[in-house]
Amino acid sequence: MELDSSVAAMMLHKAIGKQLICIFVDNGLMRKNEFEDVLHSYQDIGLNIIGVDASNEFLSALKGLSNPEDKRKAIGKVFIDVFEREAKKYQNVKWLGQGTIYPDVIESVSVHGPSVTIKSHHNVGGLPDIMGLKIVEPLRNLFKDEVRKAGRELHIDPNILNRHPFPGPGLGIRVLGEITPEKVRILQEADAIFINGLKKTGLYHEVWQAAAILLPVYSVGVMGDERTYEQALALRAVNSVDGMTGEWSKLPYEFLANISSEIINNVRGINRVVYDISTKPPSTIEWE
């Protein structure tokens, strides 16, 4: 689960305990085992967290969509639908907790003219209005590095605090083009090999963000005596200070070679692995 929301939830939990209800939605687009792992670790520390498996709803909403913007919108919409439906079960709820941080709300002076632009509030879908909830945003005054420090103060597991950033639509924007359950499964397997490899070799904390991206590209390979015609996978690892600019990580060749063969040998559906060597800008960290 993502840092800001985790810290905001823990802060609320420390303050009001069981009065906080967390709805943890499985969109089916998380990393391998992520949903169960996170759910259990939070339940263990006493957080009032309810897991909702909505993966089928997400996948059926994504059916036939291949444009990245459409995919993002669909994922966002289903999330809000699911959340609203679950939230309605709790009649006495008066507040909506959010992990908003200072850079989200800071008003800035536009460089394009002497007028001040106010960041649109990020209640995508006007959720609080519909539900008539008041908003509580415990991290509203914090910068990202301060969120992490506050998390440490709240004794949040360092594995969560120091986790790489992960996009809201999850693997939905790392399966390029149309998403199918099978493609998500392939990507989850490959991604787990890459991330675990980074962790095992101690390289995980040397990079800002690492991702496996399933490309909609099929190529010919040969495995044993058989010819294969399967998808290509891109590995991406970047070094950055704040995510605004980024350098591709110079991971050791040997490491890349090991990961490549481990993926091709173990993940049916992938017969080629490439490494992304573009910087941001002009490229972005994610592909979609």
Binding site: S5, I16, L20, C22, I23, F24, K94, W95, P167, G170
Partner: peptide, 26 residues
């Protein structure tokens, strides 16, 4: 938070990645 919320209930939606209710997810 204690003073503001009192005995009310708070609900929060969590997902796997960067907040959905946020302009940051793109």
């Amino acid at each position: 938070i204690k003073e503001k919320i009192g005995s009310d209930q708070v609900i929060m939606g969590l997902s796997g990645g960067v907040r959905f209710f946020s302009s940051c997810y793109d």
